[in-house]
Amino acid sequence: DNLVIALHSYEPSHDGDLGFEKGEQLRILEQSGEWWKAQSLTTGQEGFIPFNFVAKA
């Protein structure tokens, strides 16, 4: 599955970004460039995340 774990917390800075906490698990929905579309397994919310803040779970 496309699961990743957050290496750092991220505060959203643009509409459509997904904020998350360090250690949170996310499911990657789309990989494109440096911003990936993801869904939080904690909150169920979707949005874009910086790819370098996460690692394969």
Results as ranks from 00 to 15, higher is better:
residue 48 F to H: 07
residue 51 F to H: 15
residue 38 A to G: 05
residue 36 W to T: 07
residue 31 Q to L: 06
residue 44 G to T: 03
residue 11 E to C: 14
residue 25 Q to R: 13
residue 25 Q to D: 03
residue 9 S to I: 03
residue 53 F to Q: 06
residue 50 P to E: 06
residue 49 I to D: 05
residue 38 A to F: 03
residue 39 Q to V: 13
residue 29 L to F: 06
residue 41 L to G: 02
residue 31 Q to E: 11
residue 45 Q to I: 09
residue 17 D to Y: 15
residue 5 I to H: 04
residue 45 Q to E: 11
residue 32 S to K: 13
residue 41 L to P: 05
residue 26 L to Q: 00
residue 25 Q to S: 10
residue 21 E to T: 13
residue 5 I to T: 08
residue 25 Q to V: 15
residue 21 E to V: 14
residue 57 A to Q: 11
residue 18 L to G: 02
residue 22 K to V: 09
residue 52 N to S: 11
residue 16 G to C: 14
residue 9 S to V: 04
residue 34 E to T: 12
residue 41 L to H: 02
residue 2 N to Q: 10
residue 53 F to V: 06
residue 4 V to E: 01
residue 19 G to F: 07
residue 39 Q to N: 02
residue 39 Q to K: 11
residue 32 S to M: 13
residue 35 W to Q: 07
residue 53 F to T: 08
residue 55 A to F: 08
residue 10 Y to W: 12
residue 1 D to G: 10
residue 38 A to M: 04
residue 56 K to M: 12
residue 23 G to D: 06
residue 9 S to Q: 07
residue 46 E to H: 08
residue 45 Q to M: 11
residue 6 A to G: 05
residue 47 G to P: 00
residue 25 Q to H: 13
residue 7 L to N: 04
residue 47 G to Y: 05
residue 31 Q to A: 13
residue 47 G to W: 04
residue 23 G to Q: 01
residue 54 V to I: 07
residue 23 G to Y: 05
residue 31 Q to N: 11
residue 46 E to D: 06
residue 33 G to S: 05
residue 12 P to G: 08
residue 6 A to I: 03
residue 14 H to E: 08
residue 50 P to F: 07
residue 35 W to D: 03
residue 51 F to P: 15
residue 55 A to H: 08
residue 52 N to F: 10
residue 23 G to N: 05
residue 57 A to I: 15
residue 35 W to S: 07
residue 29 L to Y: 05
residue 18 L to M: 08
residue 37 K to C: 12
residue 19 G to T: 06
residue 40 S to W: 01
residue 3 L to Q: 05
residue 11 E to K: 14
residue 10 Y to A: 02
residue 5 I to D: 01
residue 40 S to F: 02
residue 16 G to I: 05
residue 42 T to H: 11
residue 4 V to M: 12
residue 22 K to I: 09
residue 3 L to M: 10
residue 24 E to G: 02
residue 5 I to E: 05
residue 28 I to W: 01
residue 41 L to C: 13
residue 7 L to W: 06
residue 40 S to I: 05
residue 43 T to R: 03
residue 8 H to A: 12
residue 51 F to E: 11
residue 48 F to R: 11
residue 22 K to D: 03
residue 30 E to L: 08
residue 55 A to R: 08
residue 56 K to I: 12
residue 28 I to G: 00
residue 17 D to Q: 15
residue 57 A to M: 14
residue 18 L to Q: 01
residue 4 V to C: 06
residue 25 Q to A: 10
residue 31 Q to K: 13
residue 10 Y to I: 03
residue 26 L to F: 07
residue 49 I to E: 02
residue 29 L to W: 04
residue 9 S to H: 09
residue 14 H to F: 10
residue 38 A to T: 01
residue 48 F to G: 03
residue 18 L to C: 05
residue 24 E to I: 02
residue 31 Q to F: 12
residue 50 P to K: 06
residue 22 K to H: 05
residue 16 G to H: 15
residue 7 L to G: 02
residue 17 D to M: 14
residue 38 A to N: 00
residue 13 S to T: 14
residue 50 P to N: 08
residue 2 N to H: 12
residue 36 W to I: 10
residue 51 F to A: 15
residue 17 D to T: 10
residue 5 I to L: 07
residue 57 A to P: 12
residue 30 E to F: 10
residue 22 K to G: 04
residue 37 K to Y: 15
residue 51 F to W: 13
residue 20 F to K: 00
residue 53 F to S: 11
residue 18 L to E: 00
residue 55 A to M: 12
residue 11 E to G: 06
residue 5 I to F: 09
residue 45 Q to Y: 09
residue 11 E to D: 08
residue 54 V to C: 10
residue 27 R to Q: 06
